[in-house]
Design a protein around this nucleic acid. Structure first.
Length: 345
DNA sequence: TGTATTTGACCACT
DNA sequence: AGTGGTCAAATACA
């Protein structure tokens, strides 16, 4: 009997296949390029989500030996080989202990004088565990996305209060949020007026800014070193055919929402100093707090703001990721092996 | 009553 | 064997 993850995986793959067939029908020159691009993004998202699920469940999709993957490249083994599933009446789940190398992001949040706990980072988290950690005065809380089951979102995070400064919460993010990508893509495909999007976003930012202010001052976020950055983009692919700026915007939009906004939740933070890994919260992006939930759409213009942040962030992992949207300047050789499956691994 | 949190137990990893 | 991550039943809460 299939569990929900398998169903979700199957659905994503099936959807990818159907969308690919649909795209094939739209390859006719008379078809709208926007439609093709939208279909392409949906296909990419479906496969991205499926691959993400596989990565998080003990499969290794990465073909390249990176030395930082969760498992060796040779261990492309299905999770049903787990000892726990053998001769056990417990639920057939794969429970693999995650090592530090599996973390995709480490963020330190200081909520100033408030000791109420870490800030809402814009996503809905559900606590599923708490553990006393050796050498730490405070227990570590384990959270996963509220929409893990309903939308197959595999994002998780750990929150632990700092021993040195109890007002500091160390937040480690893992996995990407896929729970809001569908609505995001739908919004992109149905909206062509970006200025209107920006206007709507600004309104939301304005409304939620008051909420942010209630959190107090002194918020800072520190990005830690990423042990294996390929986990952030486990199957990163370039957009195919960037003949239009809008198309690239769609790509950036979806990718940012999926990977940056998911893995690096406080990605709306702007760099505070050029030499520090600390990020101060820029009020202009704080609209993301509290209401950047599953259905909030991030406009291209807003993303551009984030992306075009000073290059000083290149010292940080976030900065490096924020640099990638300059892909819109990339040009692909017509001989680029898109038909080579290895490229997509 | 549905949803979120707590918490002890289980299990993988080192 | 110790430690940390996750599960799931019990409990709390709106």
């Amino acid at each position: 009997m299939m569990d929900w993850e398998q169903k979700t995986l199957l659905n994503e793959l099936t959807q990818g296949r159907e969308l690919t067939n649909l795209l094939r029908k739209h390859l006719h020159p008379s078809s709208s390029p926007h439609t093709r691009q939208a279909l392409l993004e949906k296909i990419l998202f479906s496969y991205e989500k499926a691959l993400s699920m596989l990565n998080c469940n003990g499969f290794v999709v990465e073909a390249k030996p990176t030395g930082n993957t969760l498992e060796s490249p040779a261990s492309v083994i299905a999770n049903n080989s787990s000892p726990r599933s053998e001769g056990s009446d417990k639920k057939d789940v794969f429970k693999k202990r995650k090592t530090s190398s599996g973390w995709t992001e480490q963020i330190r949040v200081c909520s100033g004088t408030s000791l109420e706990g870490p800030l809402d980072d814009g996503y809905c988290w559900r606590k599923y565990g708490q553990k006393d950690i050796l050498g730490s005065n405070f227990p570590r809380g384990y959270y996963r996305c509220t929409h893990r089951h309903s939308r197959g979102c595999l994002a998780t995070k750990q929150v632990q209060r700092s021993d040195q400064d109890p007002s500091i919460f160390e937040v480690k993010y893992r996995g990407r949020h896929t729970c809001n990508q569908a609505s995001q893509l739908a919004a992109v495909t149905t909206k062509s007026n970006h200025s209107r999007q920006k206007q709507q976003l600004e309104e939301k930012q304005k409304q939620s800014q008051e909420t942010f202010l209630s959190y107090g001052t002194g918020l800072k976020v520190k990005t830690e070193e990423l042990d294996n950055r390929e986990n952030i983009f486990p199957s990163f692919t370039f957009p195919v055919g960037s003949e239009e700026v809008d198309n690239t915007g769609i790509f950036v939009n979806s990718l940012m929402e999926n990977d940056i906004m998911g893995n690096l939740s406080p990605s709306f933070l702007s760099p505070a100093t050029s030499e520090s890994n600390y990020f101060s919260v820029s009020p202009c992006h704080m609209g993301s707090f509290g209401n950047l939930g599953q259905n909030v759409q991030t406009s291209e213009s807003d993303l551009t703001e984030i992306i075009s942040a000073p290059t000083s962030v290149t010292n940080s992992p976030i900065g490096e990721y924020l640099d990638f949207p300059s892909l819109d300047k990339l040009e692909f050789d017509s001989s680029f092996p898109f038909d080579n499956p290895e490229f997509f691994l």
